[in-house]
Nucleic acid binder design. Structure first.
Length: 953
RNA sequence: GCAGGGGUGCCCGAGCUGGCCAAAGGGGGUGGACUUAAGAUCCUCUGGCGUAGGCCUACGUGGGUUCGAAUCCCAUCUCCUGCACCA
């Protein structure tokens, strides 16, 4: 049944074309959200991402803006290619995820061996889900990033950057699967997700005609090298690399070959032949003896290690192990060499001895080189020396400098002297591809880079950042940081779907690079079906986007002049983009690129005006993740709860940039609330006994009674808060006032009114009229349905105007009056409870005017200055009873700041007005006095403004 | 390590330009009304004490500023997120 209502409105929206936006004379509002990469089904986390802009779009539309909210599909990239391959070889994990998490039927799953089919399947599913969620999208502008028209646009974009000299050639390391012969992303890994790639320094130690090549994170420690380690159990090889002969472990060769392709094995060598021999420290020619060590991992880096026992716990403990191993010493005849080893300190570390490695071994209780604690001790000393270490007198020119500052210099120096090289290695191992093979670090050469490091460009992008709004504002500092930090970005790929580099066809344009300025493409996308993609040349795009004639490549616009003009005008109408919405984790790449590319290509007037970021989604407190199966599909949520409930929950449980948590009990709570709203108009009819009449115009009714004034004041206050909140994308805050607090006020009002006259009828009708408007952006189906039921106009709810706050009916005194009534009822009940009595009559004494006058004085004084308040009160001669006056003035001085003083109100009239309500609340007869004509216990002196005295009898 | 953001009552979370704050709202729980019953709905309570509307203890911990601090300052403990070539 719910579905039928939803379908009905979807059709009406579609037929009326109210979400198809064309330029007109209204003010425009252009909003986009990161288009999805449809490699899986849409879940409730995605649902939040796309509901936020829809709510904003609907809100702005009601405010009278011409809103454009388009959608497209980002299908370029490598992941689907990997998925297709895995489906093809019937990878059980992949099949399971797609069957049971993404709910793909078997007959469809079979077709998933084609990556293009995967994105086609899911983008069409996304489209349906978005329609079912009621998104007010202009679907005429829908496209996929592999459409030929779009590809032309991307070629234009990349040529723009190239022409501005912002694209250049270079090389960089990637995770790589040797079996697949392809780079792999984190999602393609079986093991080693999130593992980083570290840069190590290789140091070449001469030995005879060759070099033993050791890898290190701490090249500066070469000053403290005392000996050398090889693993006698491992296999080693001699290789030729650029004319030099290197000795490294056999296992490491198969890694290194992916970075140093010209390397060739000459022959196997036996590590035992080297043990006991010497290498030379390339820096100073010192002879370093070669010792055996089991901790040396032949799989890591080069399988060759130089030893710095003063600063490396592993080296120290290995040396100790060796000293205690008479058998090994005898085997290699190492006694004399061991006796000659002298520890060399090279870093001063405050709080530690000359040889910090020894301190750390003690501190971490490391007993041998096989000890588990060794790794931790090593990590700690590395970190500490890097952060706080100072190079000492053994390090020549570097003495007195900080380790952190020196390392880069050392690397540069060694490389210049040709005693060092570099090597990339995983921070952790193993890193295993889904195909089962071990991944390696590969260095890709001839790569194309976007020059985000360019100073001028970065500065221009800063200007772009400065002129736009960031929601939430705390994120701005992140952007400032990232714009500076961004290095050159590898923008070409070998694998995946996408657009080829126009000048170097073997490369594809990387998928983040092809989605930086596509917001401009939406503005022209609806015309593309009239145009042949080949005709979309640089001259055309230059004209439309930059209003320039001709192009660098000599092309001439082939498209009809009139059409070109129309397209250009449409672009100029919608641009610049008002709001860009995207996930929090895209701050450092996509959103920054978005600014960079706009700053580079477009004139300042077309730079984006605002950015809003999203938080993550949790499911019952756990992180949502498709790959772990911890998700609820949006389509299933809609089936179970209905789109409006899903929307309402997603928008009310957290602000967009915060993490939301889908908890079933809370979703149920929201659903019940939604039902109550759906029935509210009916409830009002039951109360008033007449038909609710909703009208396009919605005037504030004229009322006399305090309680009616009160609810009208509250309603308008809520309008104000909700409006301001929505302007800043605070959907939760907006709902807090337009749903939860609004409802609390209405409930209170219904509870409070003791009769229903015309005033109340008008007021209730007004409330319904405002309420559905405030909620319309959040729950479009429900509000359309209510509107349809209670009005006769030929206009859709979605076309109605947003309610305006009428400040003239927001009145603090009215609020204070109601607050007084509530406090009074509460106080009476409390006194009854404490005294355990059942009074028959309750006498209420209001504060005399002079007490208000004291408050006026207290307000004038401002500070809680009791003396001053008494003095002024006395001078003004407010009361004949001086003792009373000073007593009350003292009290006023102490408590005034706890009271929100809004001026004098007619307490007797207000209480009299609410007499029926108060009596039913407290269950006794109430008599209210202006003057204390009957006051046996002299309670009336307790009365303060807003706080009448009470006497129970 | 670098950068950014937090720690509030049973849970989630607002407040944080100092005083209307024992601290919104939701969820959960409690008692009551309605109902044959269940569910839904509505009302009360949900830090402690109290025979007159009050008092005490509280917003990670320890100090400080102030007539007054969840809110400002300092220190400290602790948690989360990002650190890329990938969507």
């Amino acid at each position: 049944m719910v579905t039928e209502i939803e379908k009905k409105w979807q059709k009406k929206w579609q037929d009326s074309k109210i979400f198809e936006s064309n330029p007109d004379n209204r003010e425009k509002m252009y909003i986009t959200v990161a288009f999805p990469y449809p490699s899986g089904a849409m879940h409730i986390g995605h649902g939040r991402t796309y509901t936020v802009p829809d709510v904003y779009a609907r809100f702005k539309r009601m405010q009278g803006f011409n809103v454009l909210f388009p959608m497209a599909w980002h299908v370029t990239g490598a992941p689907v290619v990997g998925i297709a391959k895995r489906i093809e070889r019937q990878d059980p994990w992949t099949l399971d995820i797609y069957k049971n998490v993404h709910r793909v039927p078997d007959d469809e799953l079979q077709k998933f061996t084609d990556p293009e089919y995967i994105v086609k399947y899911f983008s069409s599913e996304y489209h349906d889900d978005m329609t079912n969620m009621g998104y007010s999208i202009d679907w005429r502008r829908e496209f996929r990033t592999i459409d030929p028209h779009y590809k032309q646009f991307i070629r234009w974009q990349i040529r723009q950057l190239k022409d501005k000299d912002l694209i250049h050639k270079g090389s960089h390391p990637v995770k790589y699967c040797p079996d697949d012969d392809n780079p792999v992303g984190d999602h393609d890994l079986l093991e080693g997700e999130g593992v980083g790639i570290n840069e190590l320094t290789l140091i070449k130690f001469p030995i005879a005609d060759s070099f033993l090549v050791a890898a290190t994170f701490r090249p500066e420690t070469l000053y403290g090298a005392t000996n050398f380690w090889l693993n006698p159990e491992a296999e080693y090889v001699k290789v030729d690399y650029e004319g030099e002969k290197w000795i490294i472990s056999k296992k490491s060769f198969s890694n290194i070959i992916h970075q140093k392709e010209s390397m060739k094995i000459i022959e196997d060598v036996n590590p035992n032949d080297f043990i006991g021999d010497y290498v030379l420290n390339p820096m100073n020619g010192t002879k370093l003896p070669i010792f055996p060590a089991s901790f040396v991992d032949p799989d890591y880096a080069t399988g060759v290690v130089f030893s710095v026992p003063a600063h490396a716990p592993a080296d120290y403990i290995a040396l100790e192990d060796l000293k205690n191993n008479a058998e090994l010493i005898a085997k290699y005849d190492l006694q004399e060499q061991i006796d000659n080893i002298q520890l060399i300190s090279l870093v001063n570390l405050k709080g530690y001895s000359e040889y910090p490695a020894i301190d750390f071994i003690k501190q971490y209780n490391v007993t041998s080189q096989e000890d588990k604690n060794l790794k931790e001790a090593t990590n700690e000393i590395y970190k500490l020396e890097h952060a706080k270490g100072i190079m000492n007198e053994n390090t020549g020119d570097f003495e007195g400098k900080r380790v952190a500052d020196v390392r880069g210099e050392v690397i540069e120096k060694f490389i210049n002297e040709n005693i060092a090289d570099k090597l990339y290695e995983f921070a952790e191992k193993p890193v295993k591809c889904r195909c089962g093979a071990m991944c390696v670090v590969k260095e890709l050469h001839d790569q194309w880079f976007v020059k985000y490091s360019d100073k001028d460009w970065t500065n221009r992008t800063y200007e772009c950042l400065e002129q736009l709004e960031v929601v939430p504002k705390e994120i701005r500092s992140n952007f400032e940081y990232y714009l500076d930090w961004l290095e050159d970005w590898a923008c070409s790929r070998r694998l995946g779907l996408g657009t080829h580099m126009p000048w170097d066809e073997k490369w594809l344009i990387e998928p983040l690079t092809d989605s930086t300025i596509y917001m401009s493409y939406y503005t022209i996308a609806k015309y593309m079906n009239q145009i042949n993609p080949e005709d979309l040349n640089d001259a055309f795009f230059n004209k439309v986007f930059l209003n320039q004639e001709g192009a660098n490549d000599g092309s001439v616009n082939q498209i009809d002049e009139g059409l070109t003009k129309q397209i250009q005008e449409e672009f100029q109408y919608w641009y610049p983009l008002n709001w860009r919405l995207s996930a929090k984790d895209l701050v450092g790449n996509h959103l920054s690129f978005h600014m960079f590319h706009h700053a580079a290509i477009f004139p300042q007037k077309y730079w984006p005006k605002g950015i809003t970021v999203f938080g993550m989604g949790l499911l019952e407190g756990q992180k949502m993740s498709s790959s772990k199966g911890n998700v609820i599909l949006l389509s299933e949520a809609i089936d179970k709860y209905g789109a409006d409930t899903v929307r309402l929950f997603l928008m009310s449980s957290a602000e967009p940039w915060q993490d939301f948590d889908w908890r079933e009990t809370e979703v149920n709570g929201i659903q019940r609330r939604l039902e109550a709203i759906g029935q509210f108009a009916q409830k009002v009819e039951d109360i008033t006994g007449q038909k609710v009449e909703l009208t396009v115009e919605n005037e504030v009714p004229n009322v006399e009674k305090s309680i009616n004034k009160w609810i009208i004041s509250q309603v308008n206050k809520n309008i104000g808060v909700a409006t301001e909140a929505l302007e800043g994308f605070q959907t939760r805050k907006a709902l807090q006032s337009s749903l939860f607090l609004f409802r609390k006020d209405v409930d209170h009002y219904l509870n409070r009114i003791t009769q229903v006259s015309d005033e109340e009828k008008d007021t209730l009708n007004y409330i319904v009229n405002v309420w559905i408007r405030l909620l319309a952006p959040f729950i479009p189906y429900t509000t359309e349905e209510i509107w349809d039921q209670y009005n006769n106009d030929e206009i859709l709810m979605s076309e109605l105007s947003w309610p305006q706050m009428d400040e003239s009916v927001v009145d603090e005194k009215i609020e204070k009056a109601e607050e007084m009534i509530q406090d009074l009822a509460k106080d009476i009940k409390e006194v009854i409870k404490i005294t355990k009595t059942t009074p028959e009559t309750i006498h209420i004494y209001t504060a005399p005017k002079w007490k208000y006058d004291v408050y006026e004085i207290a307000q004038e004084v401002g500070k809680p200055n009791v003396g001053e308040i008494i003095k002024k009160s006395m001078q003004a001669n407010l009361c004949d009873n001086k003792k009373e006056l000073s007593k009350f003035a003292t009290k006023a001085g102490k408590t005034f700041n706890k009271i929100n003083y809004v001026g004098q109100i007619d307490e007797v009239a207000i209480i009299t007005d609410a007499l029926g309500y108060l009596e039913s609340e407290v269950g006794a007869k109430i008599v209210v006095y202006d003057e204390p004509t009957y006051d046996p216990q002299n309670k009336s002196s307790n009365a303060s403004p807003y706080k009448p005295a009470i006497y129970l009898e």
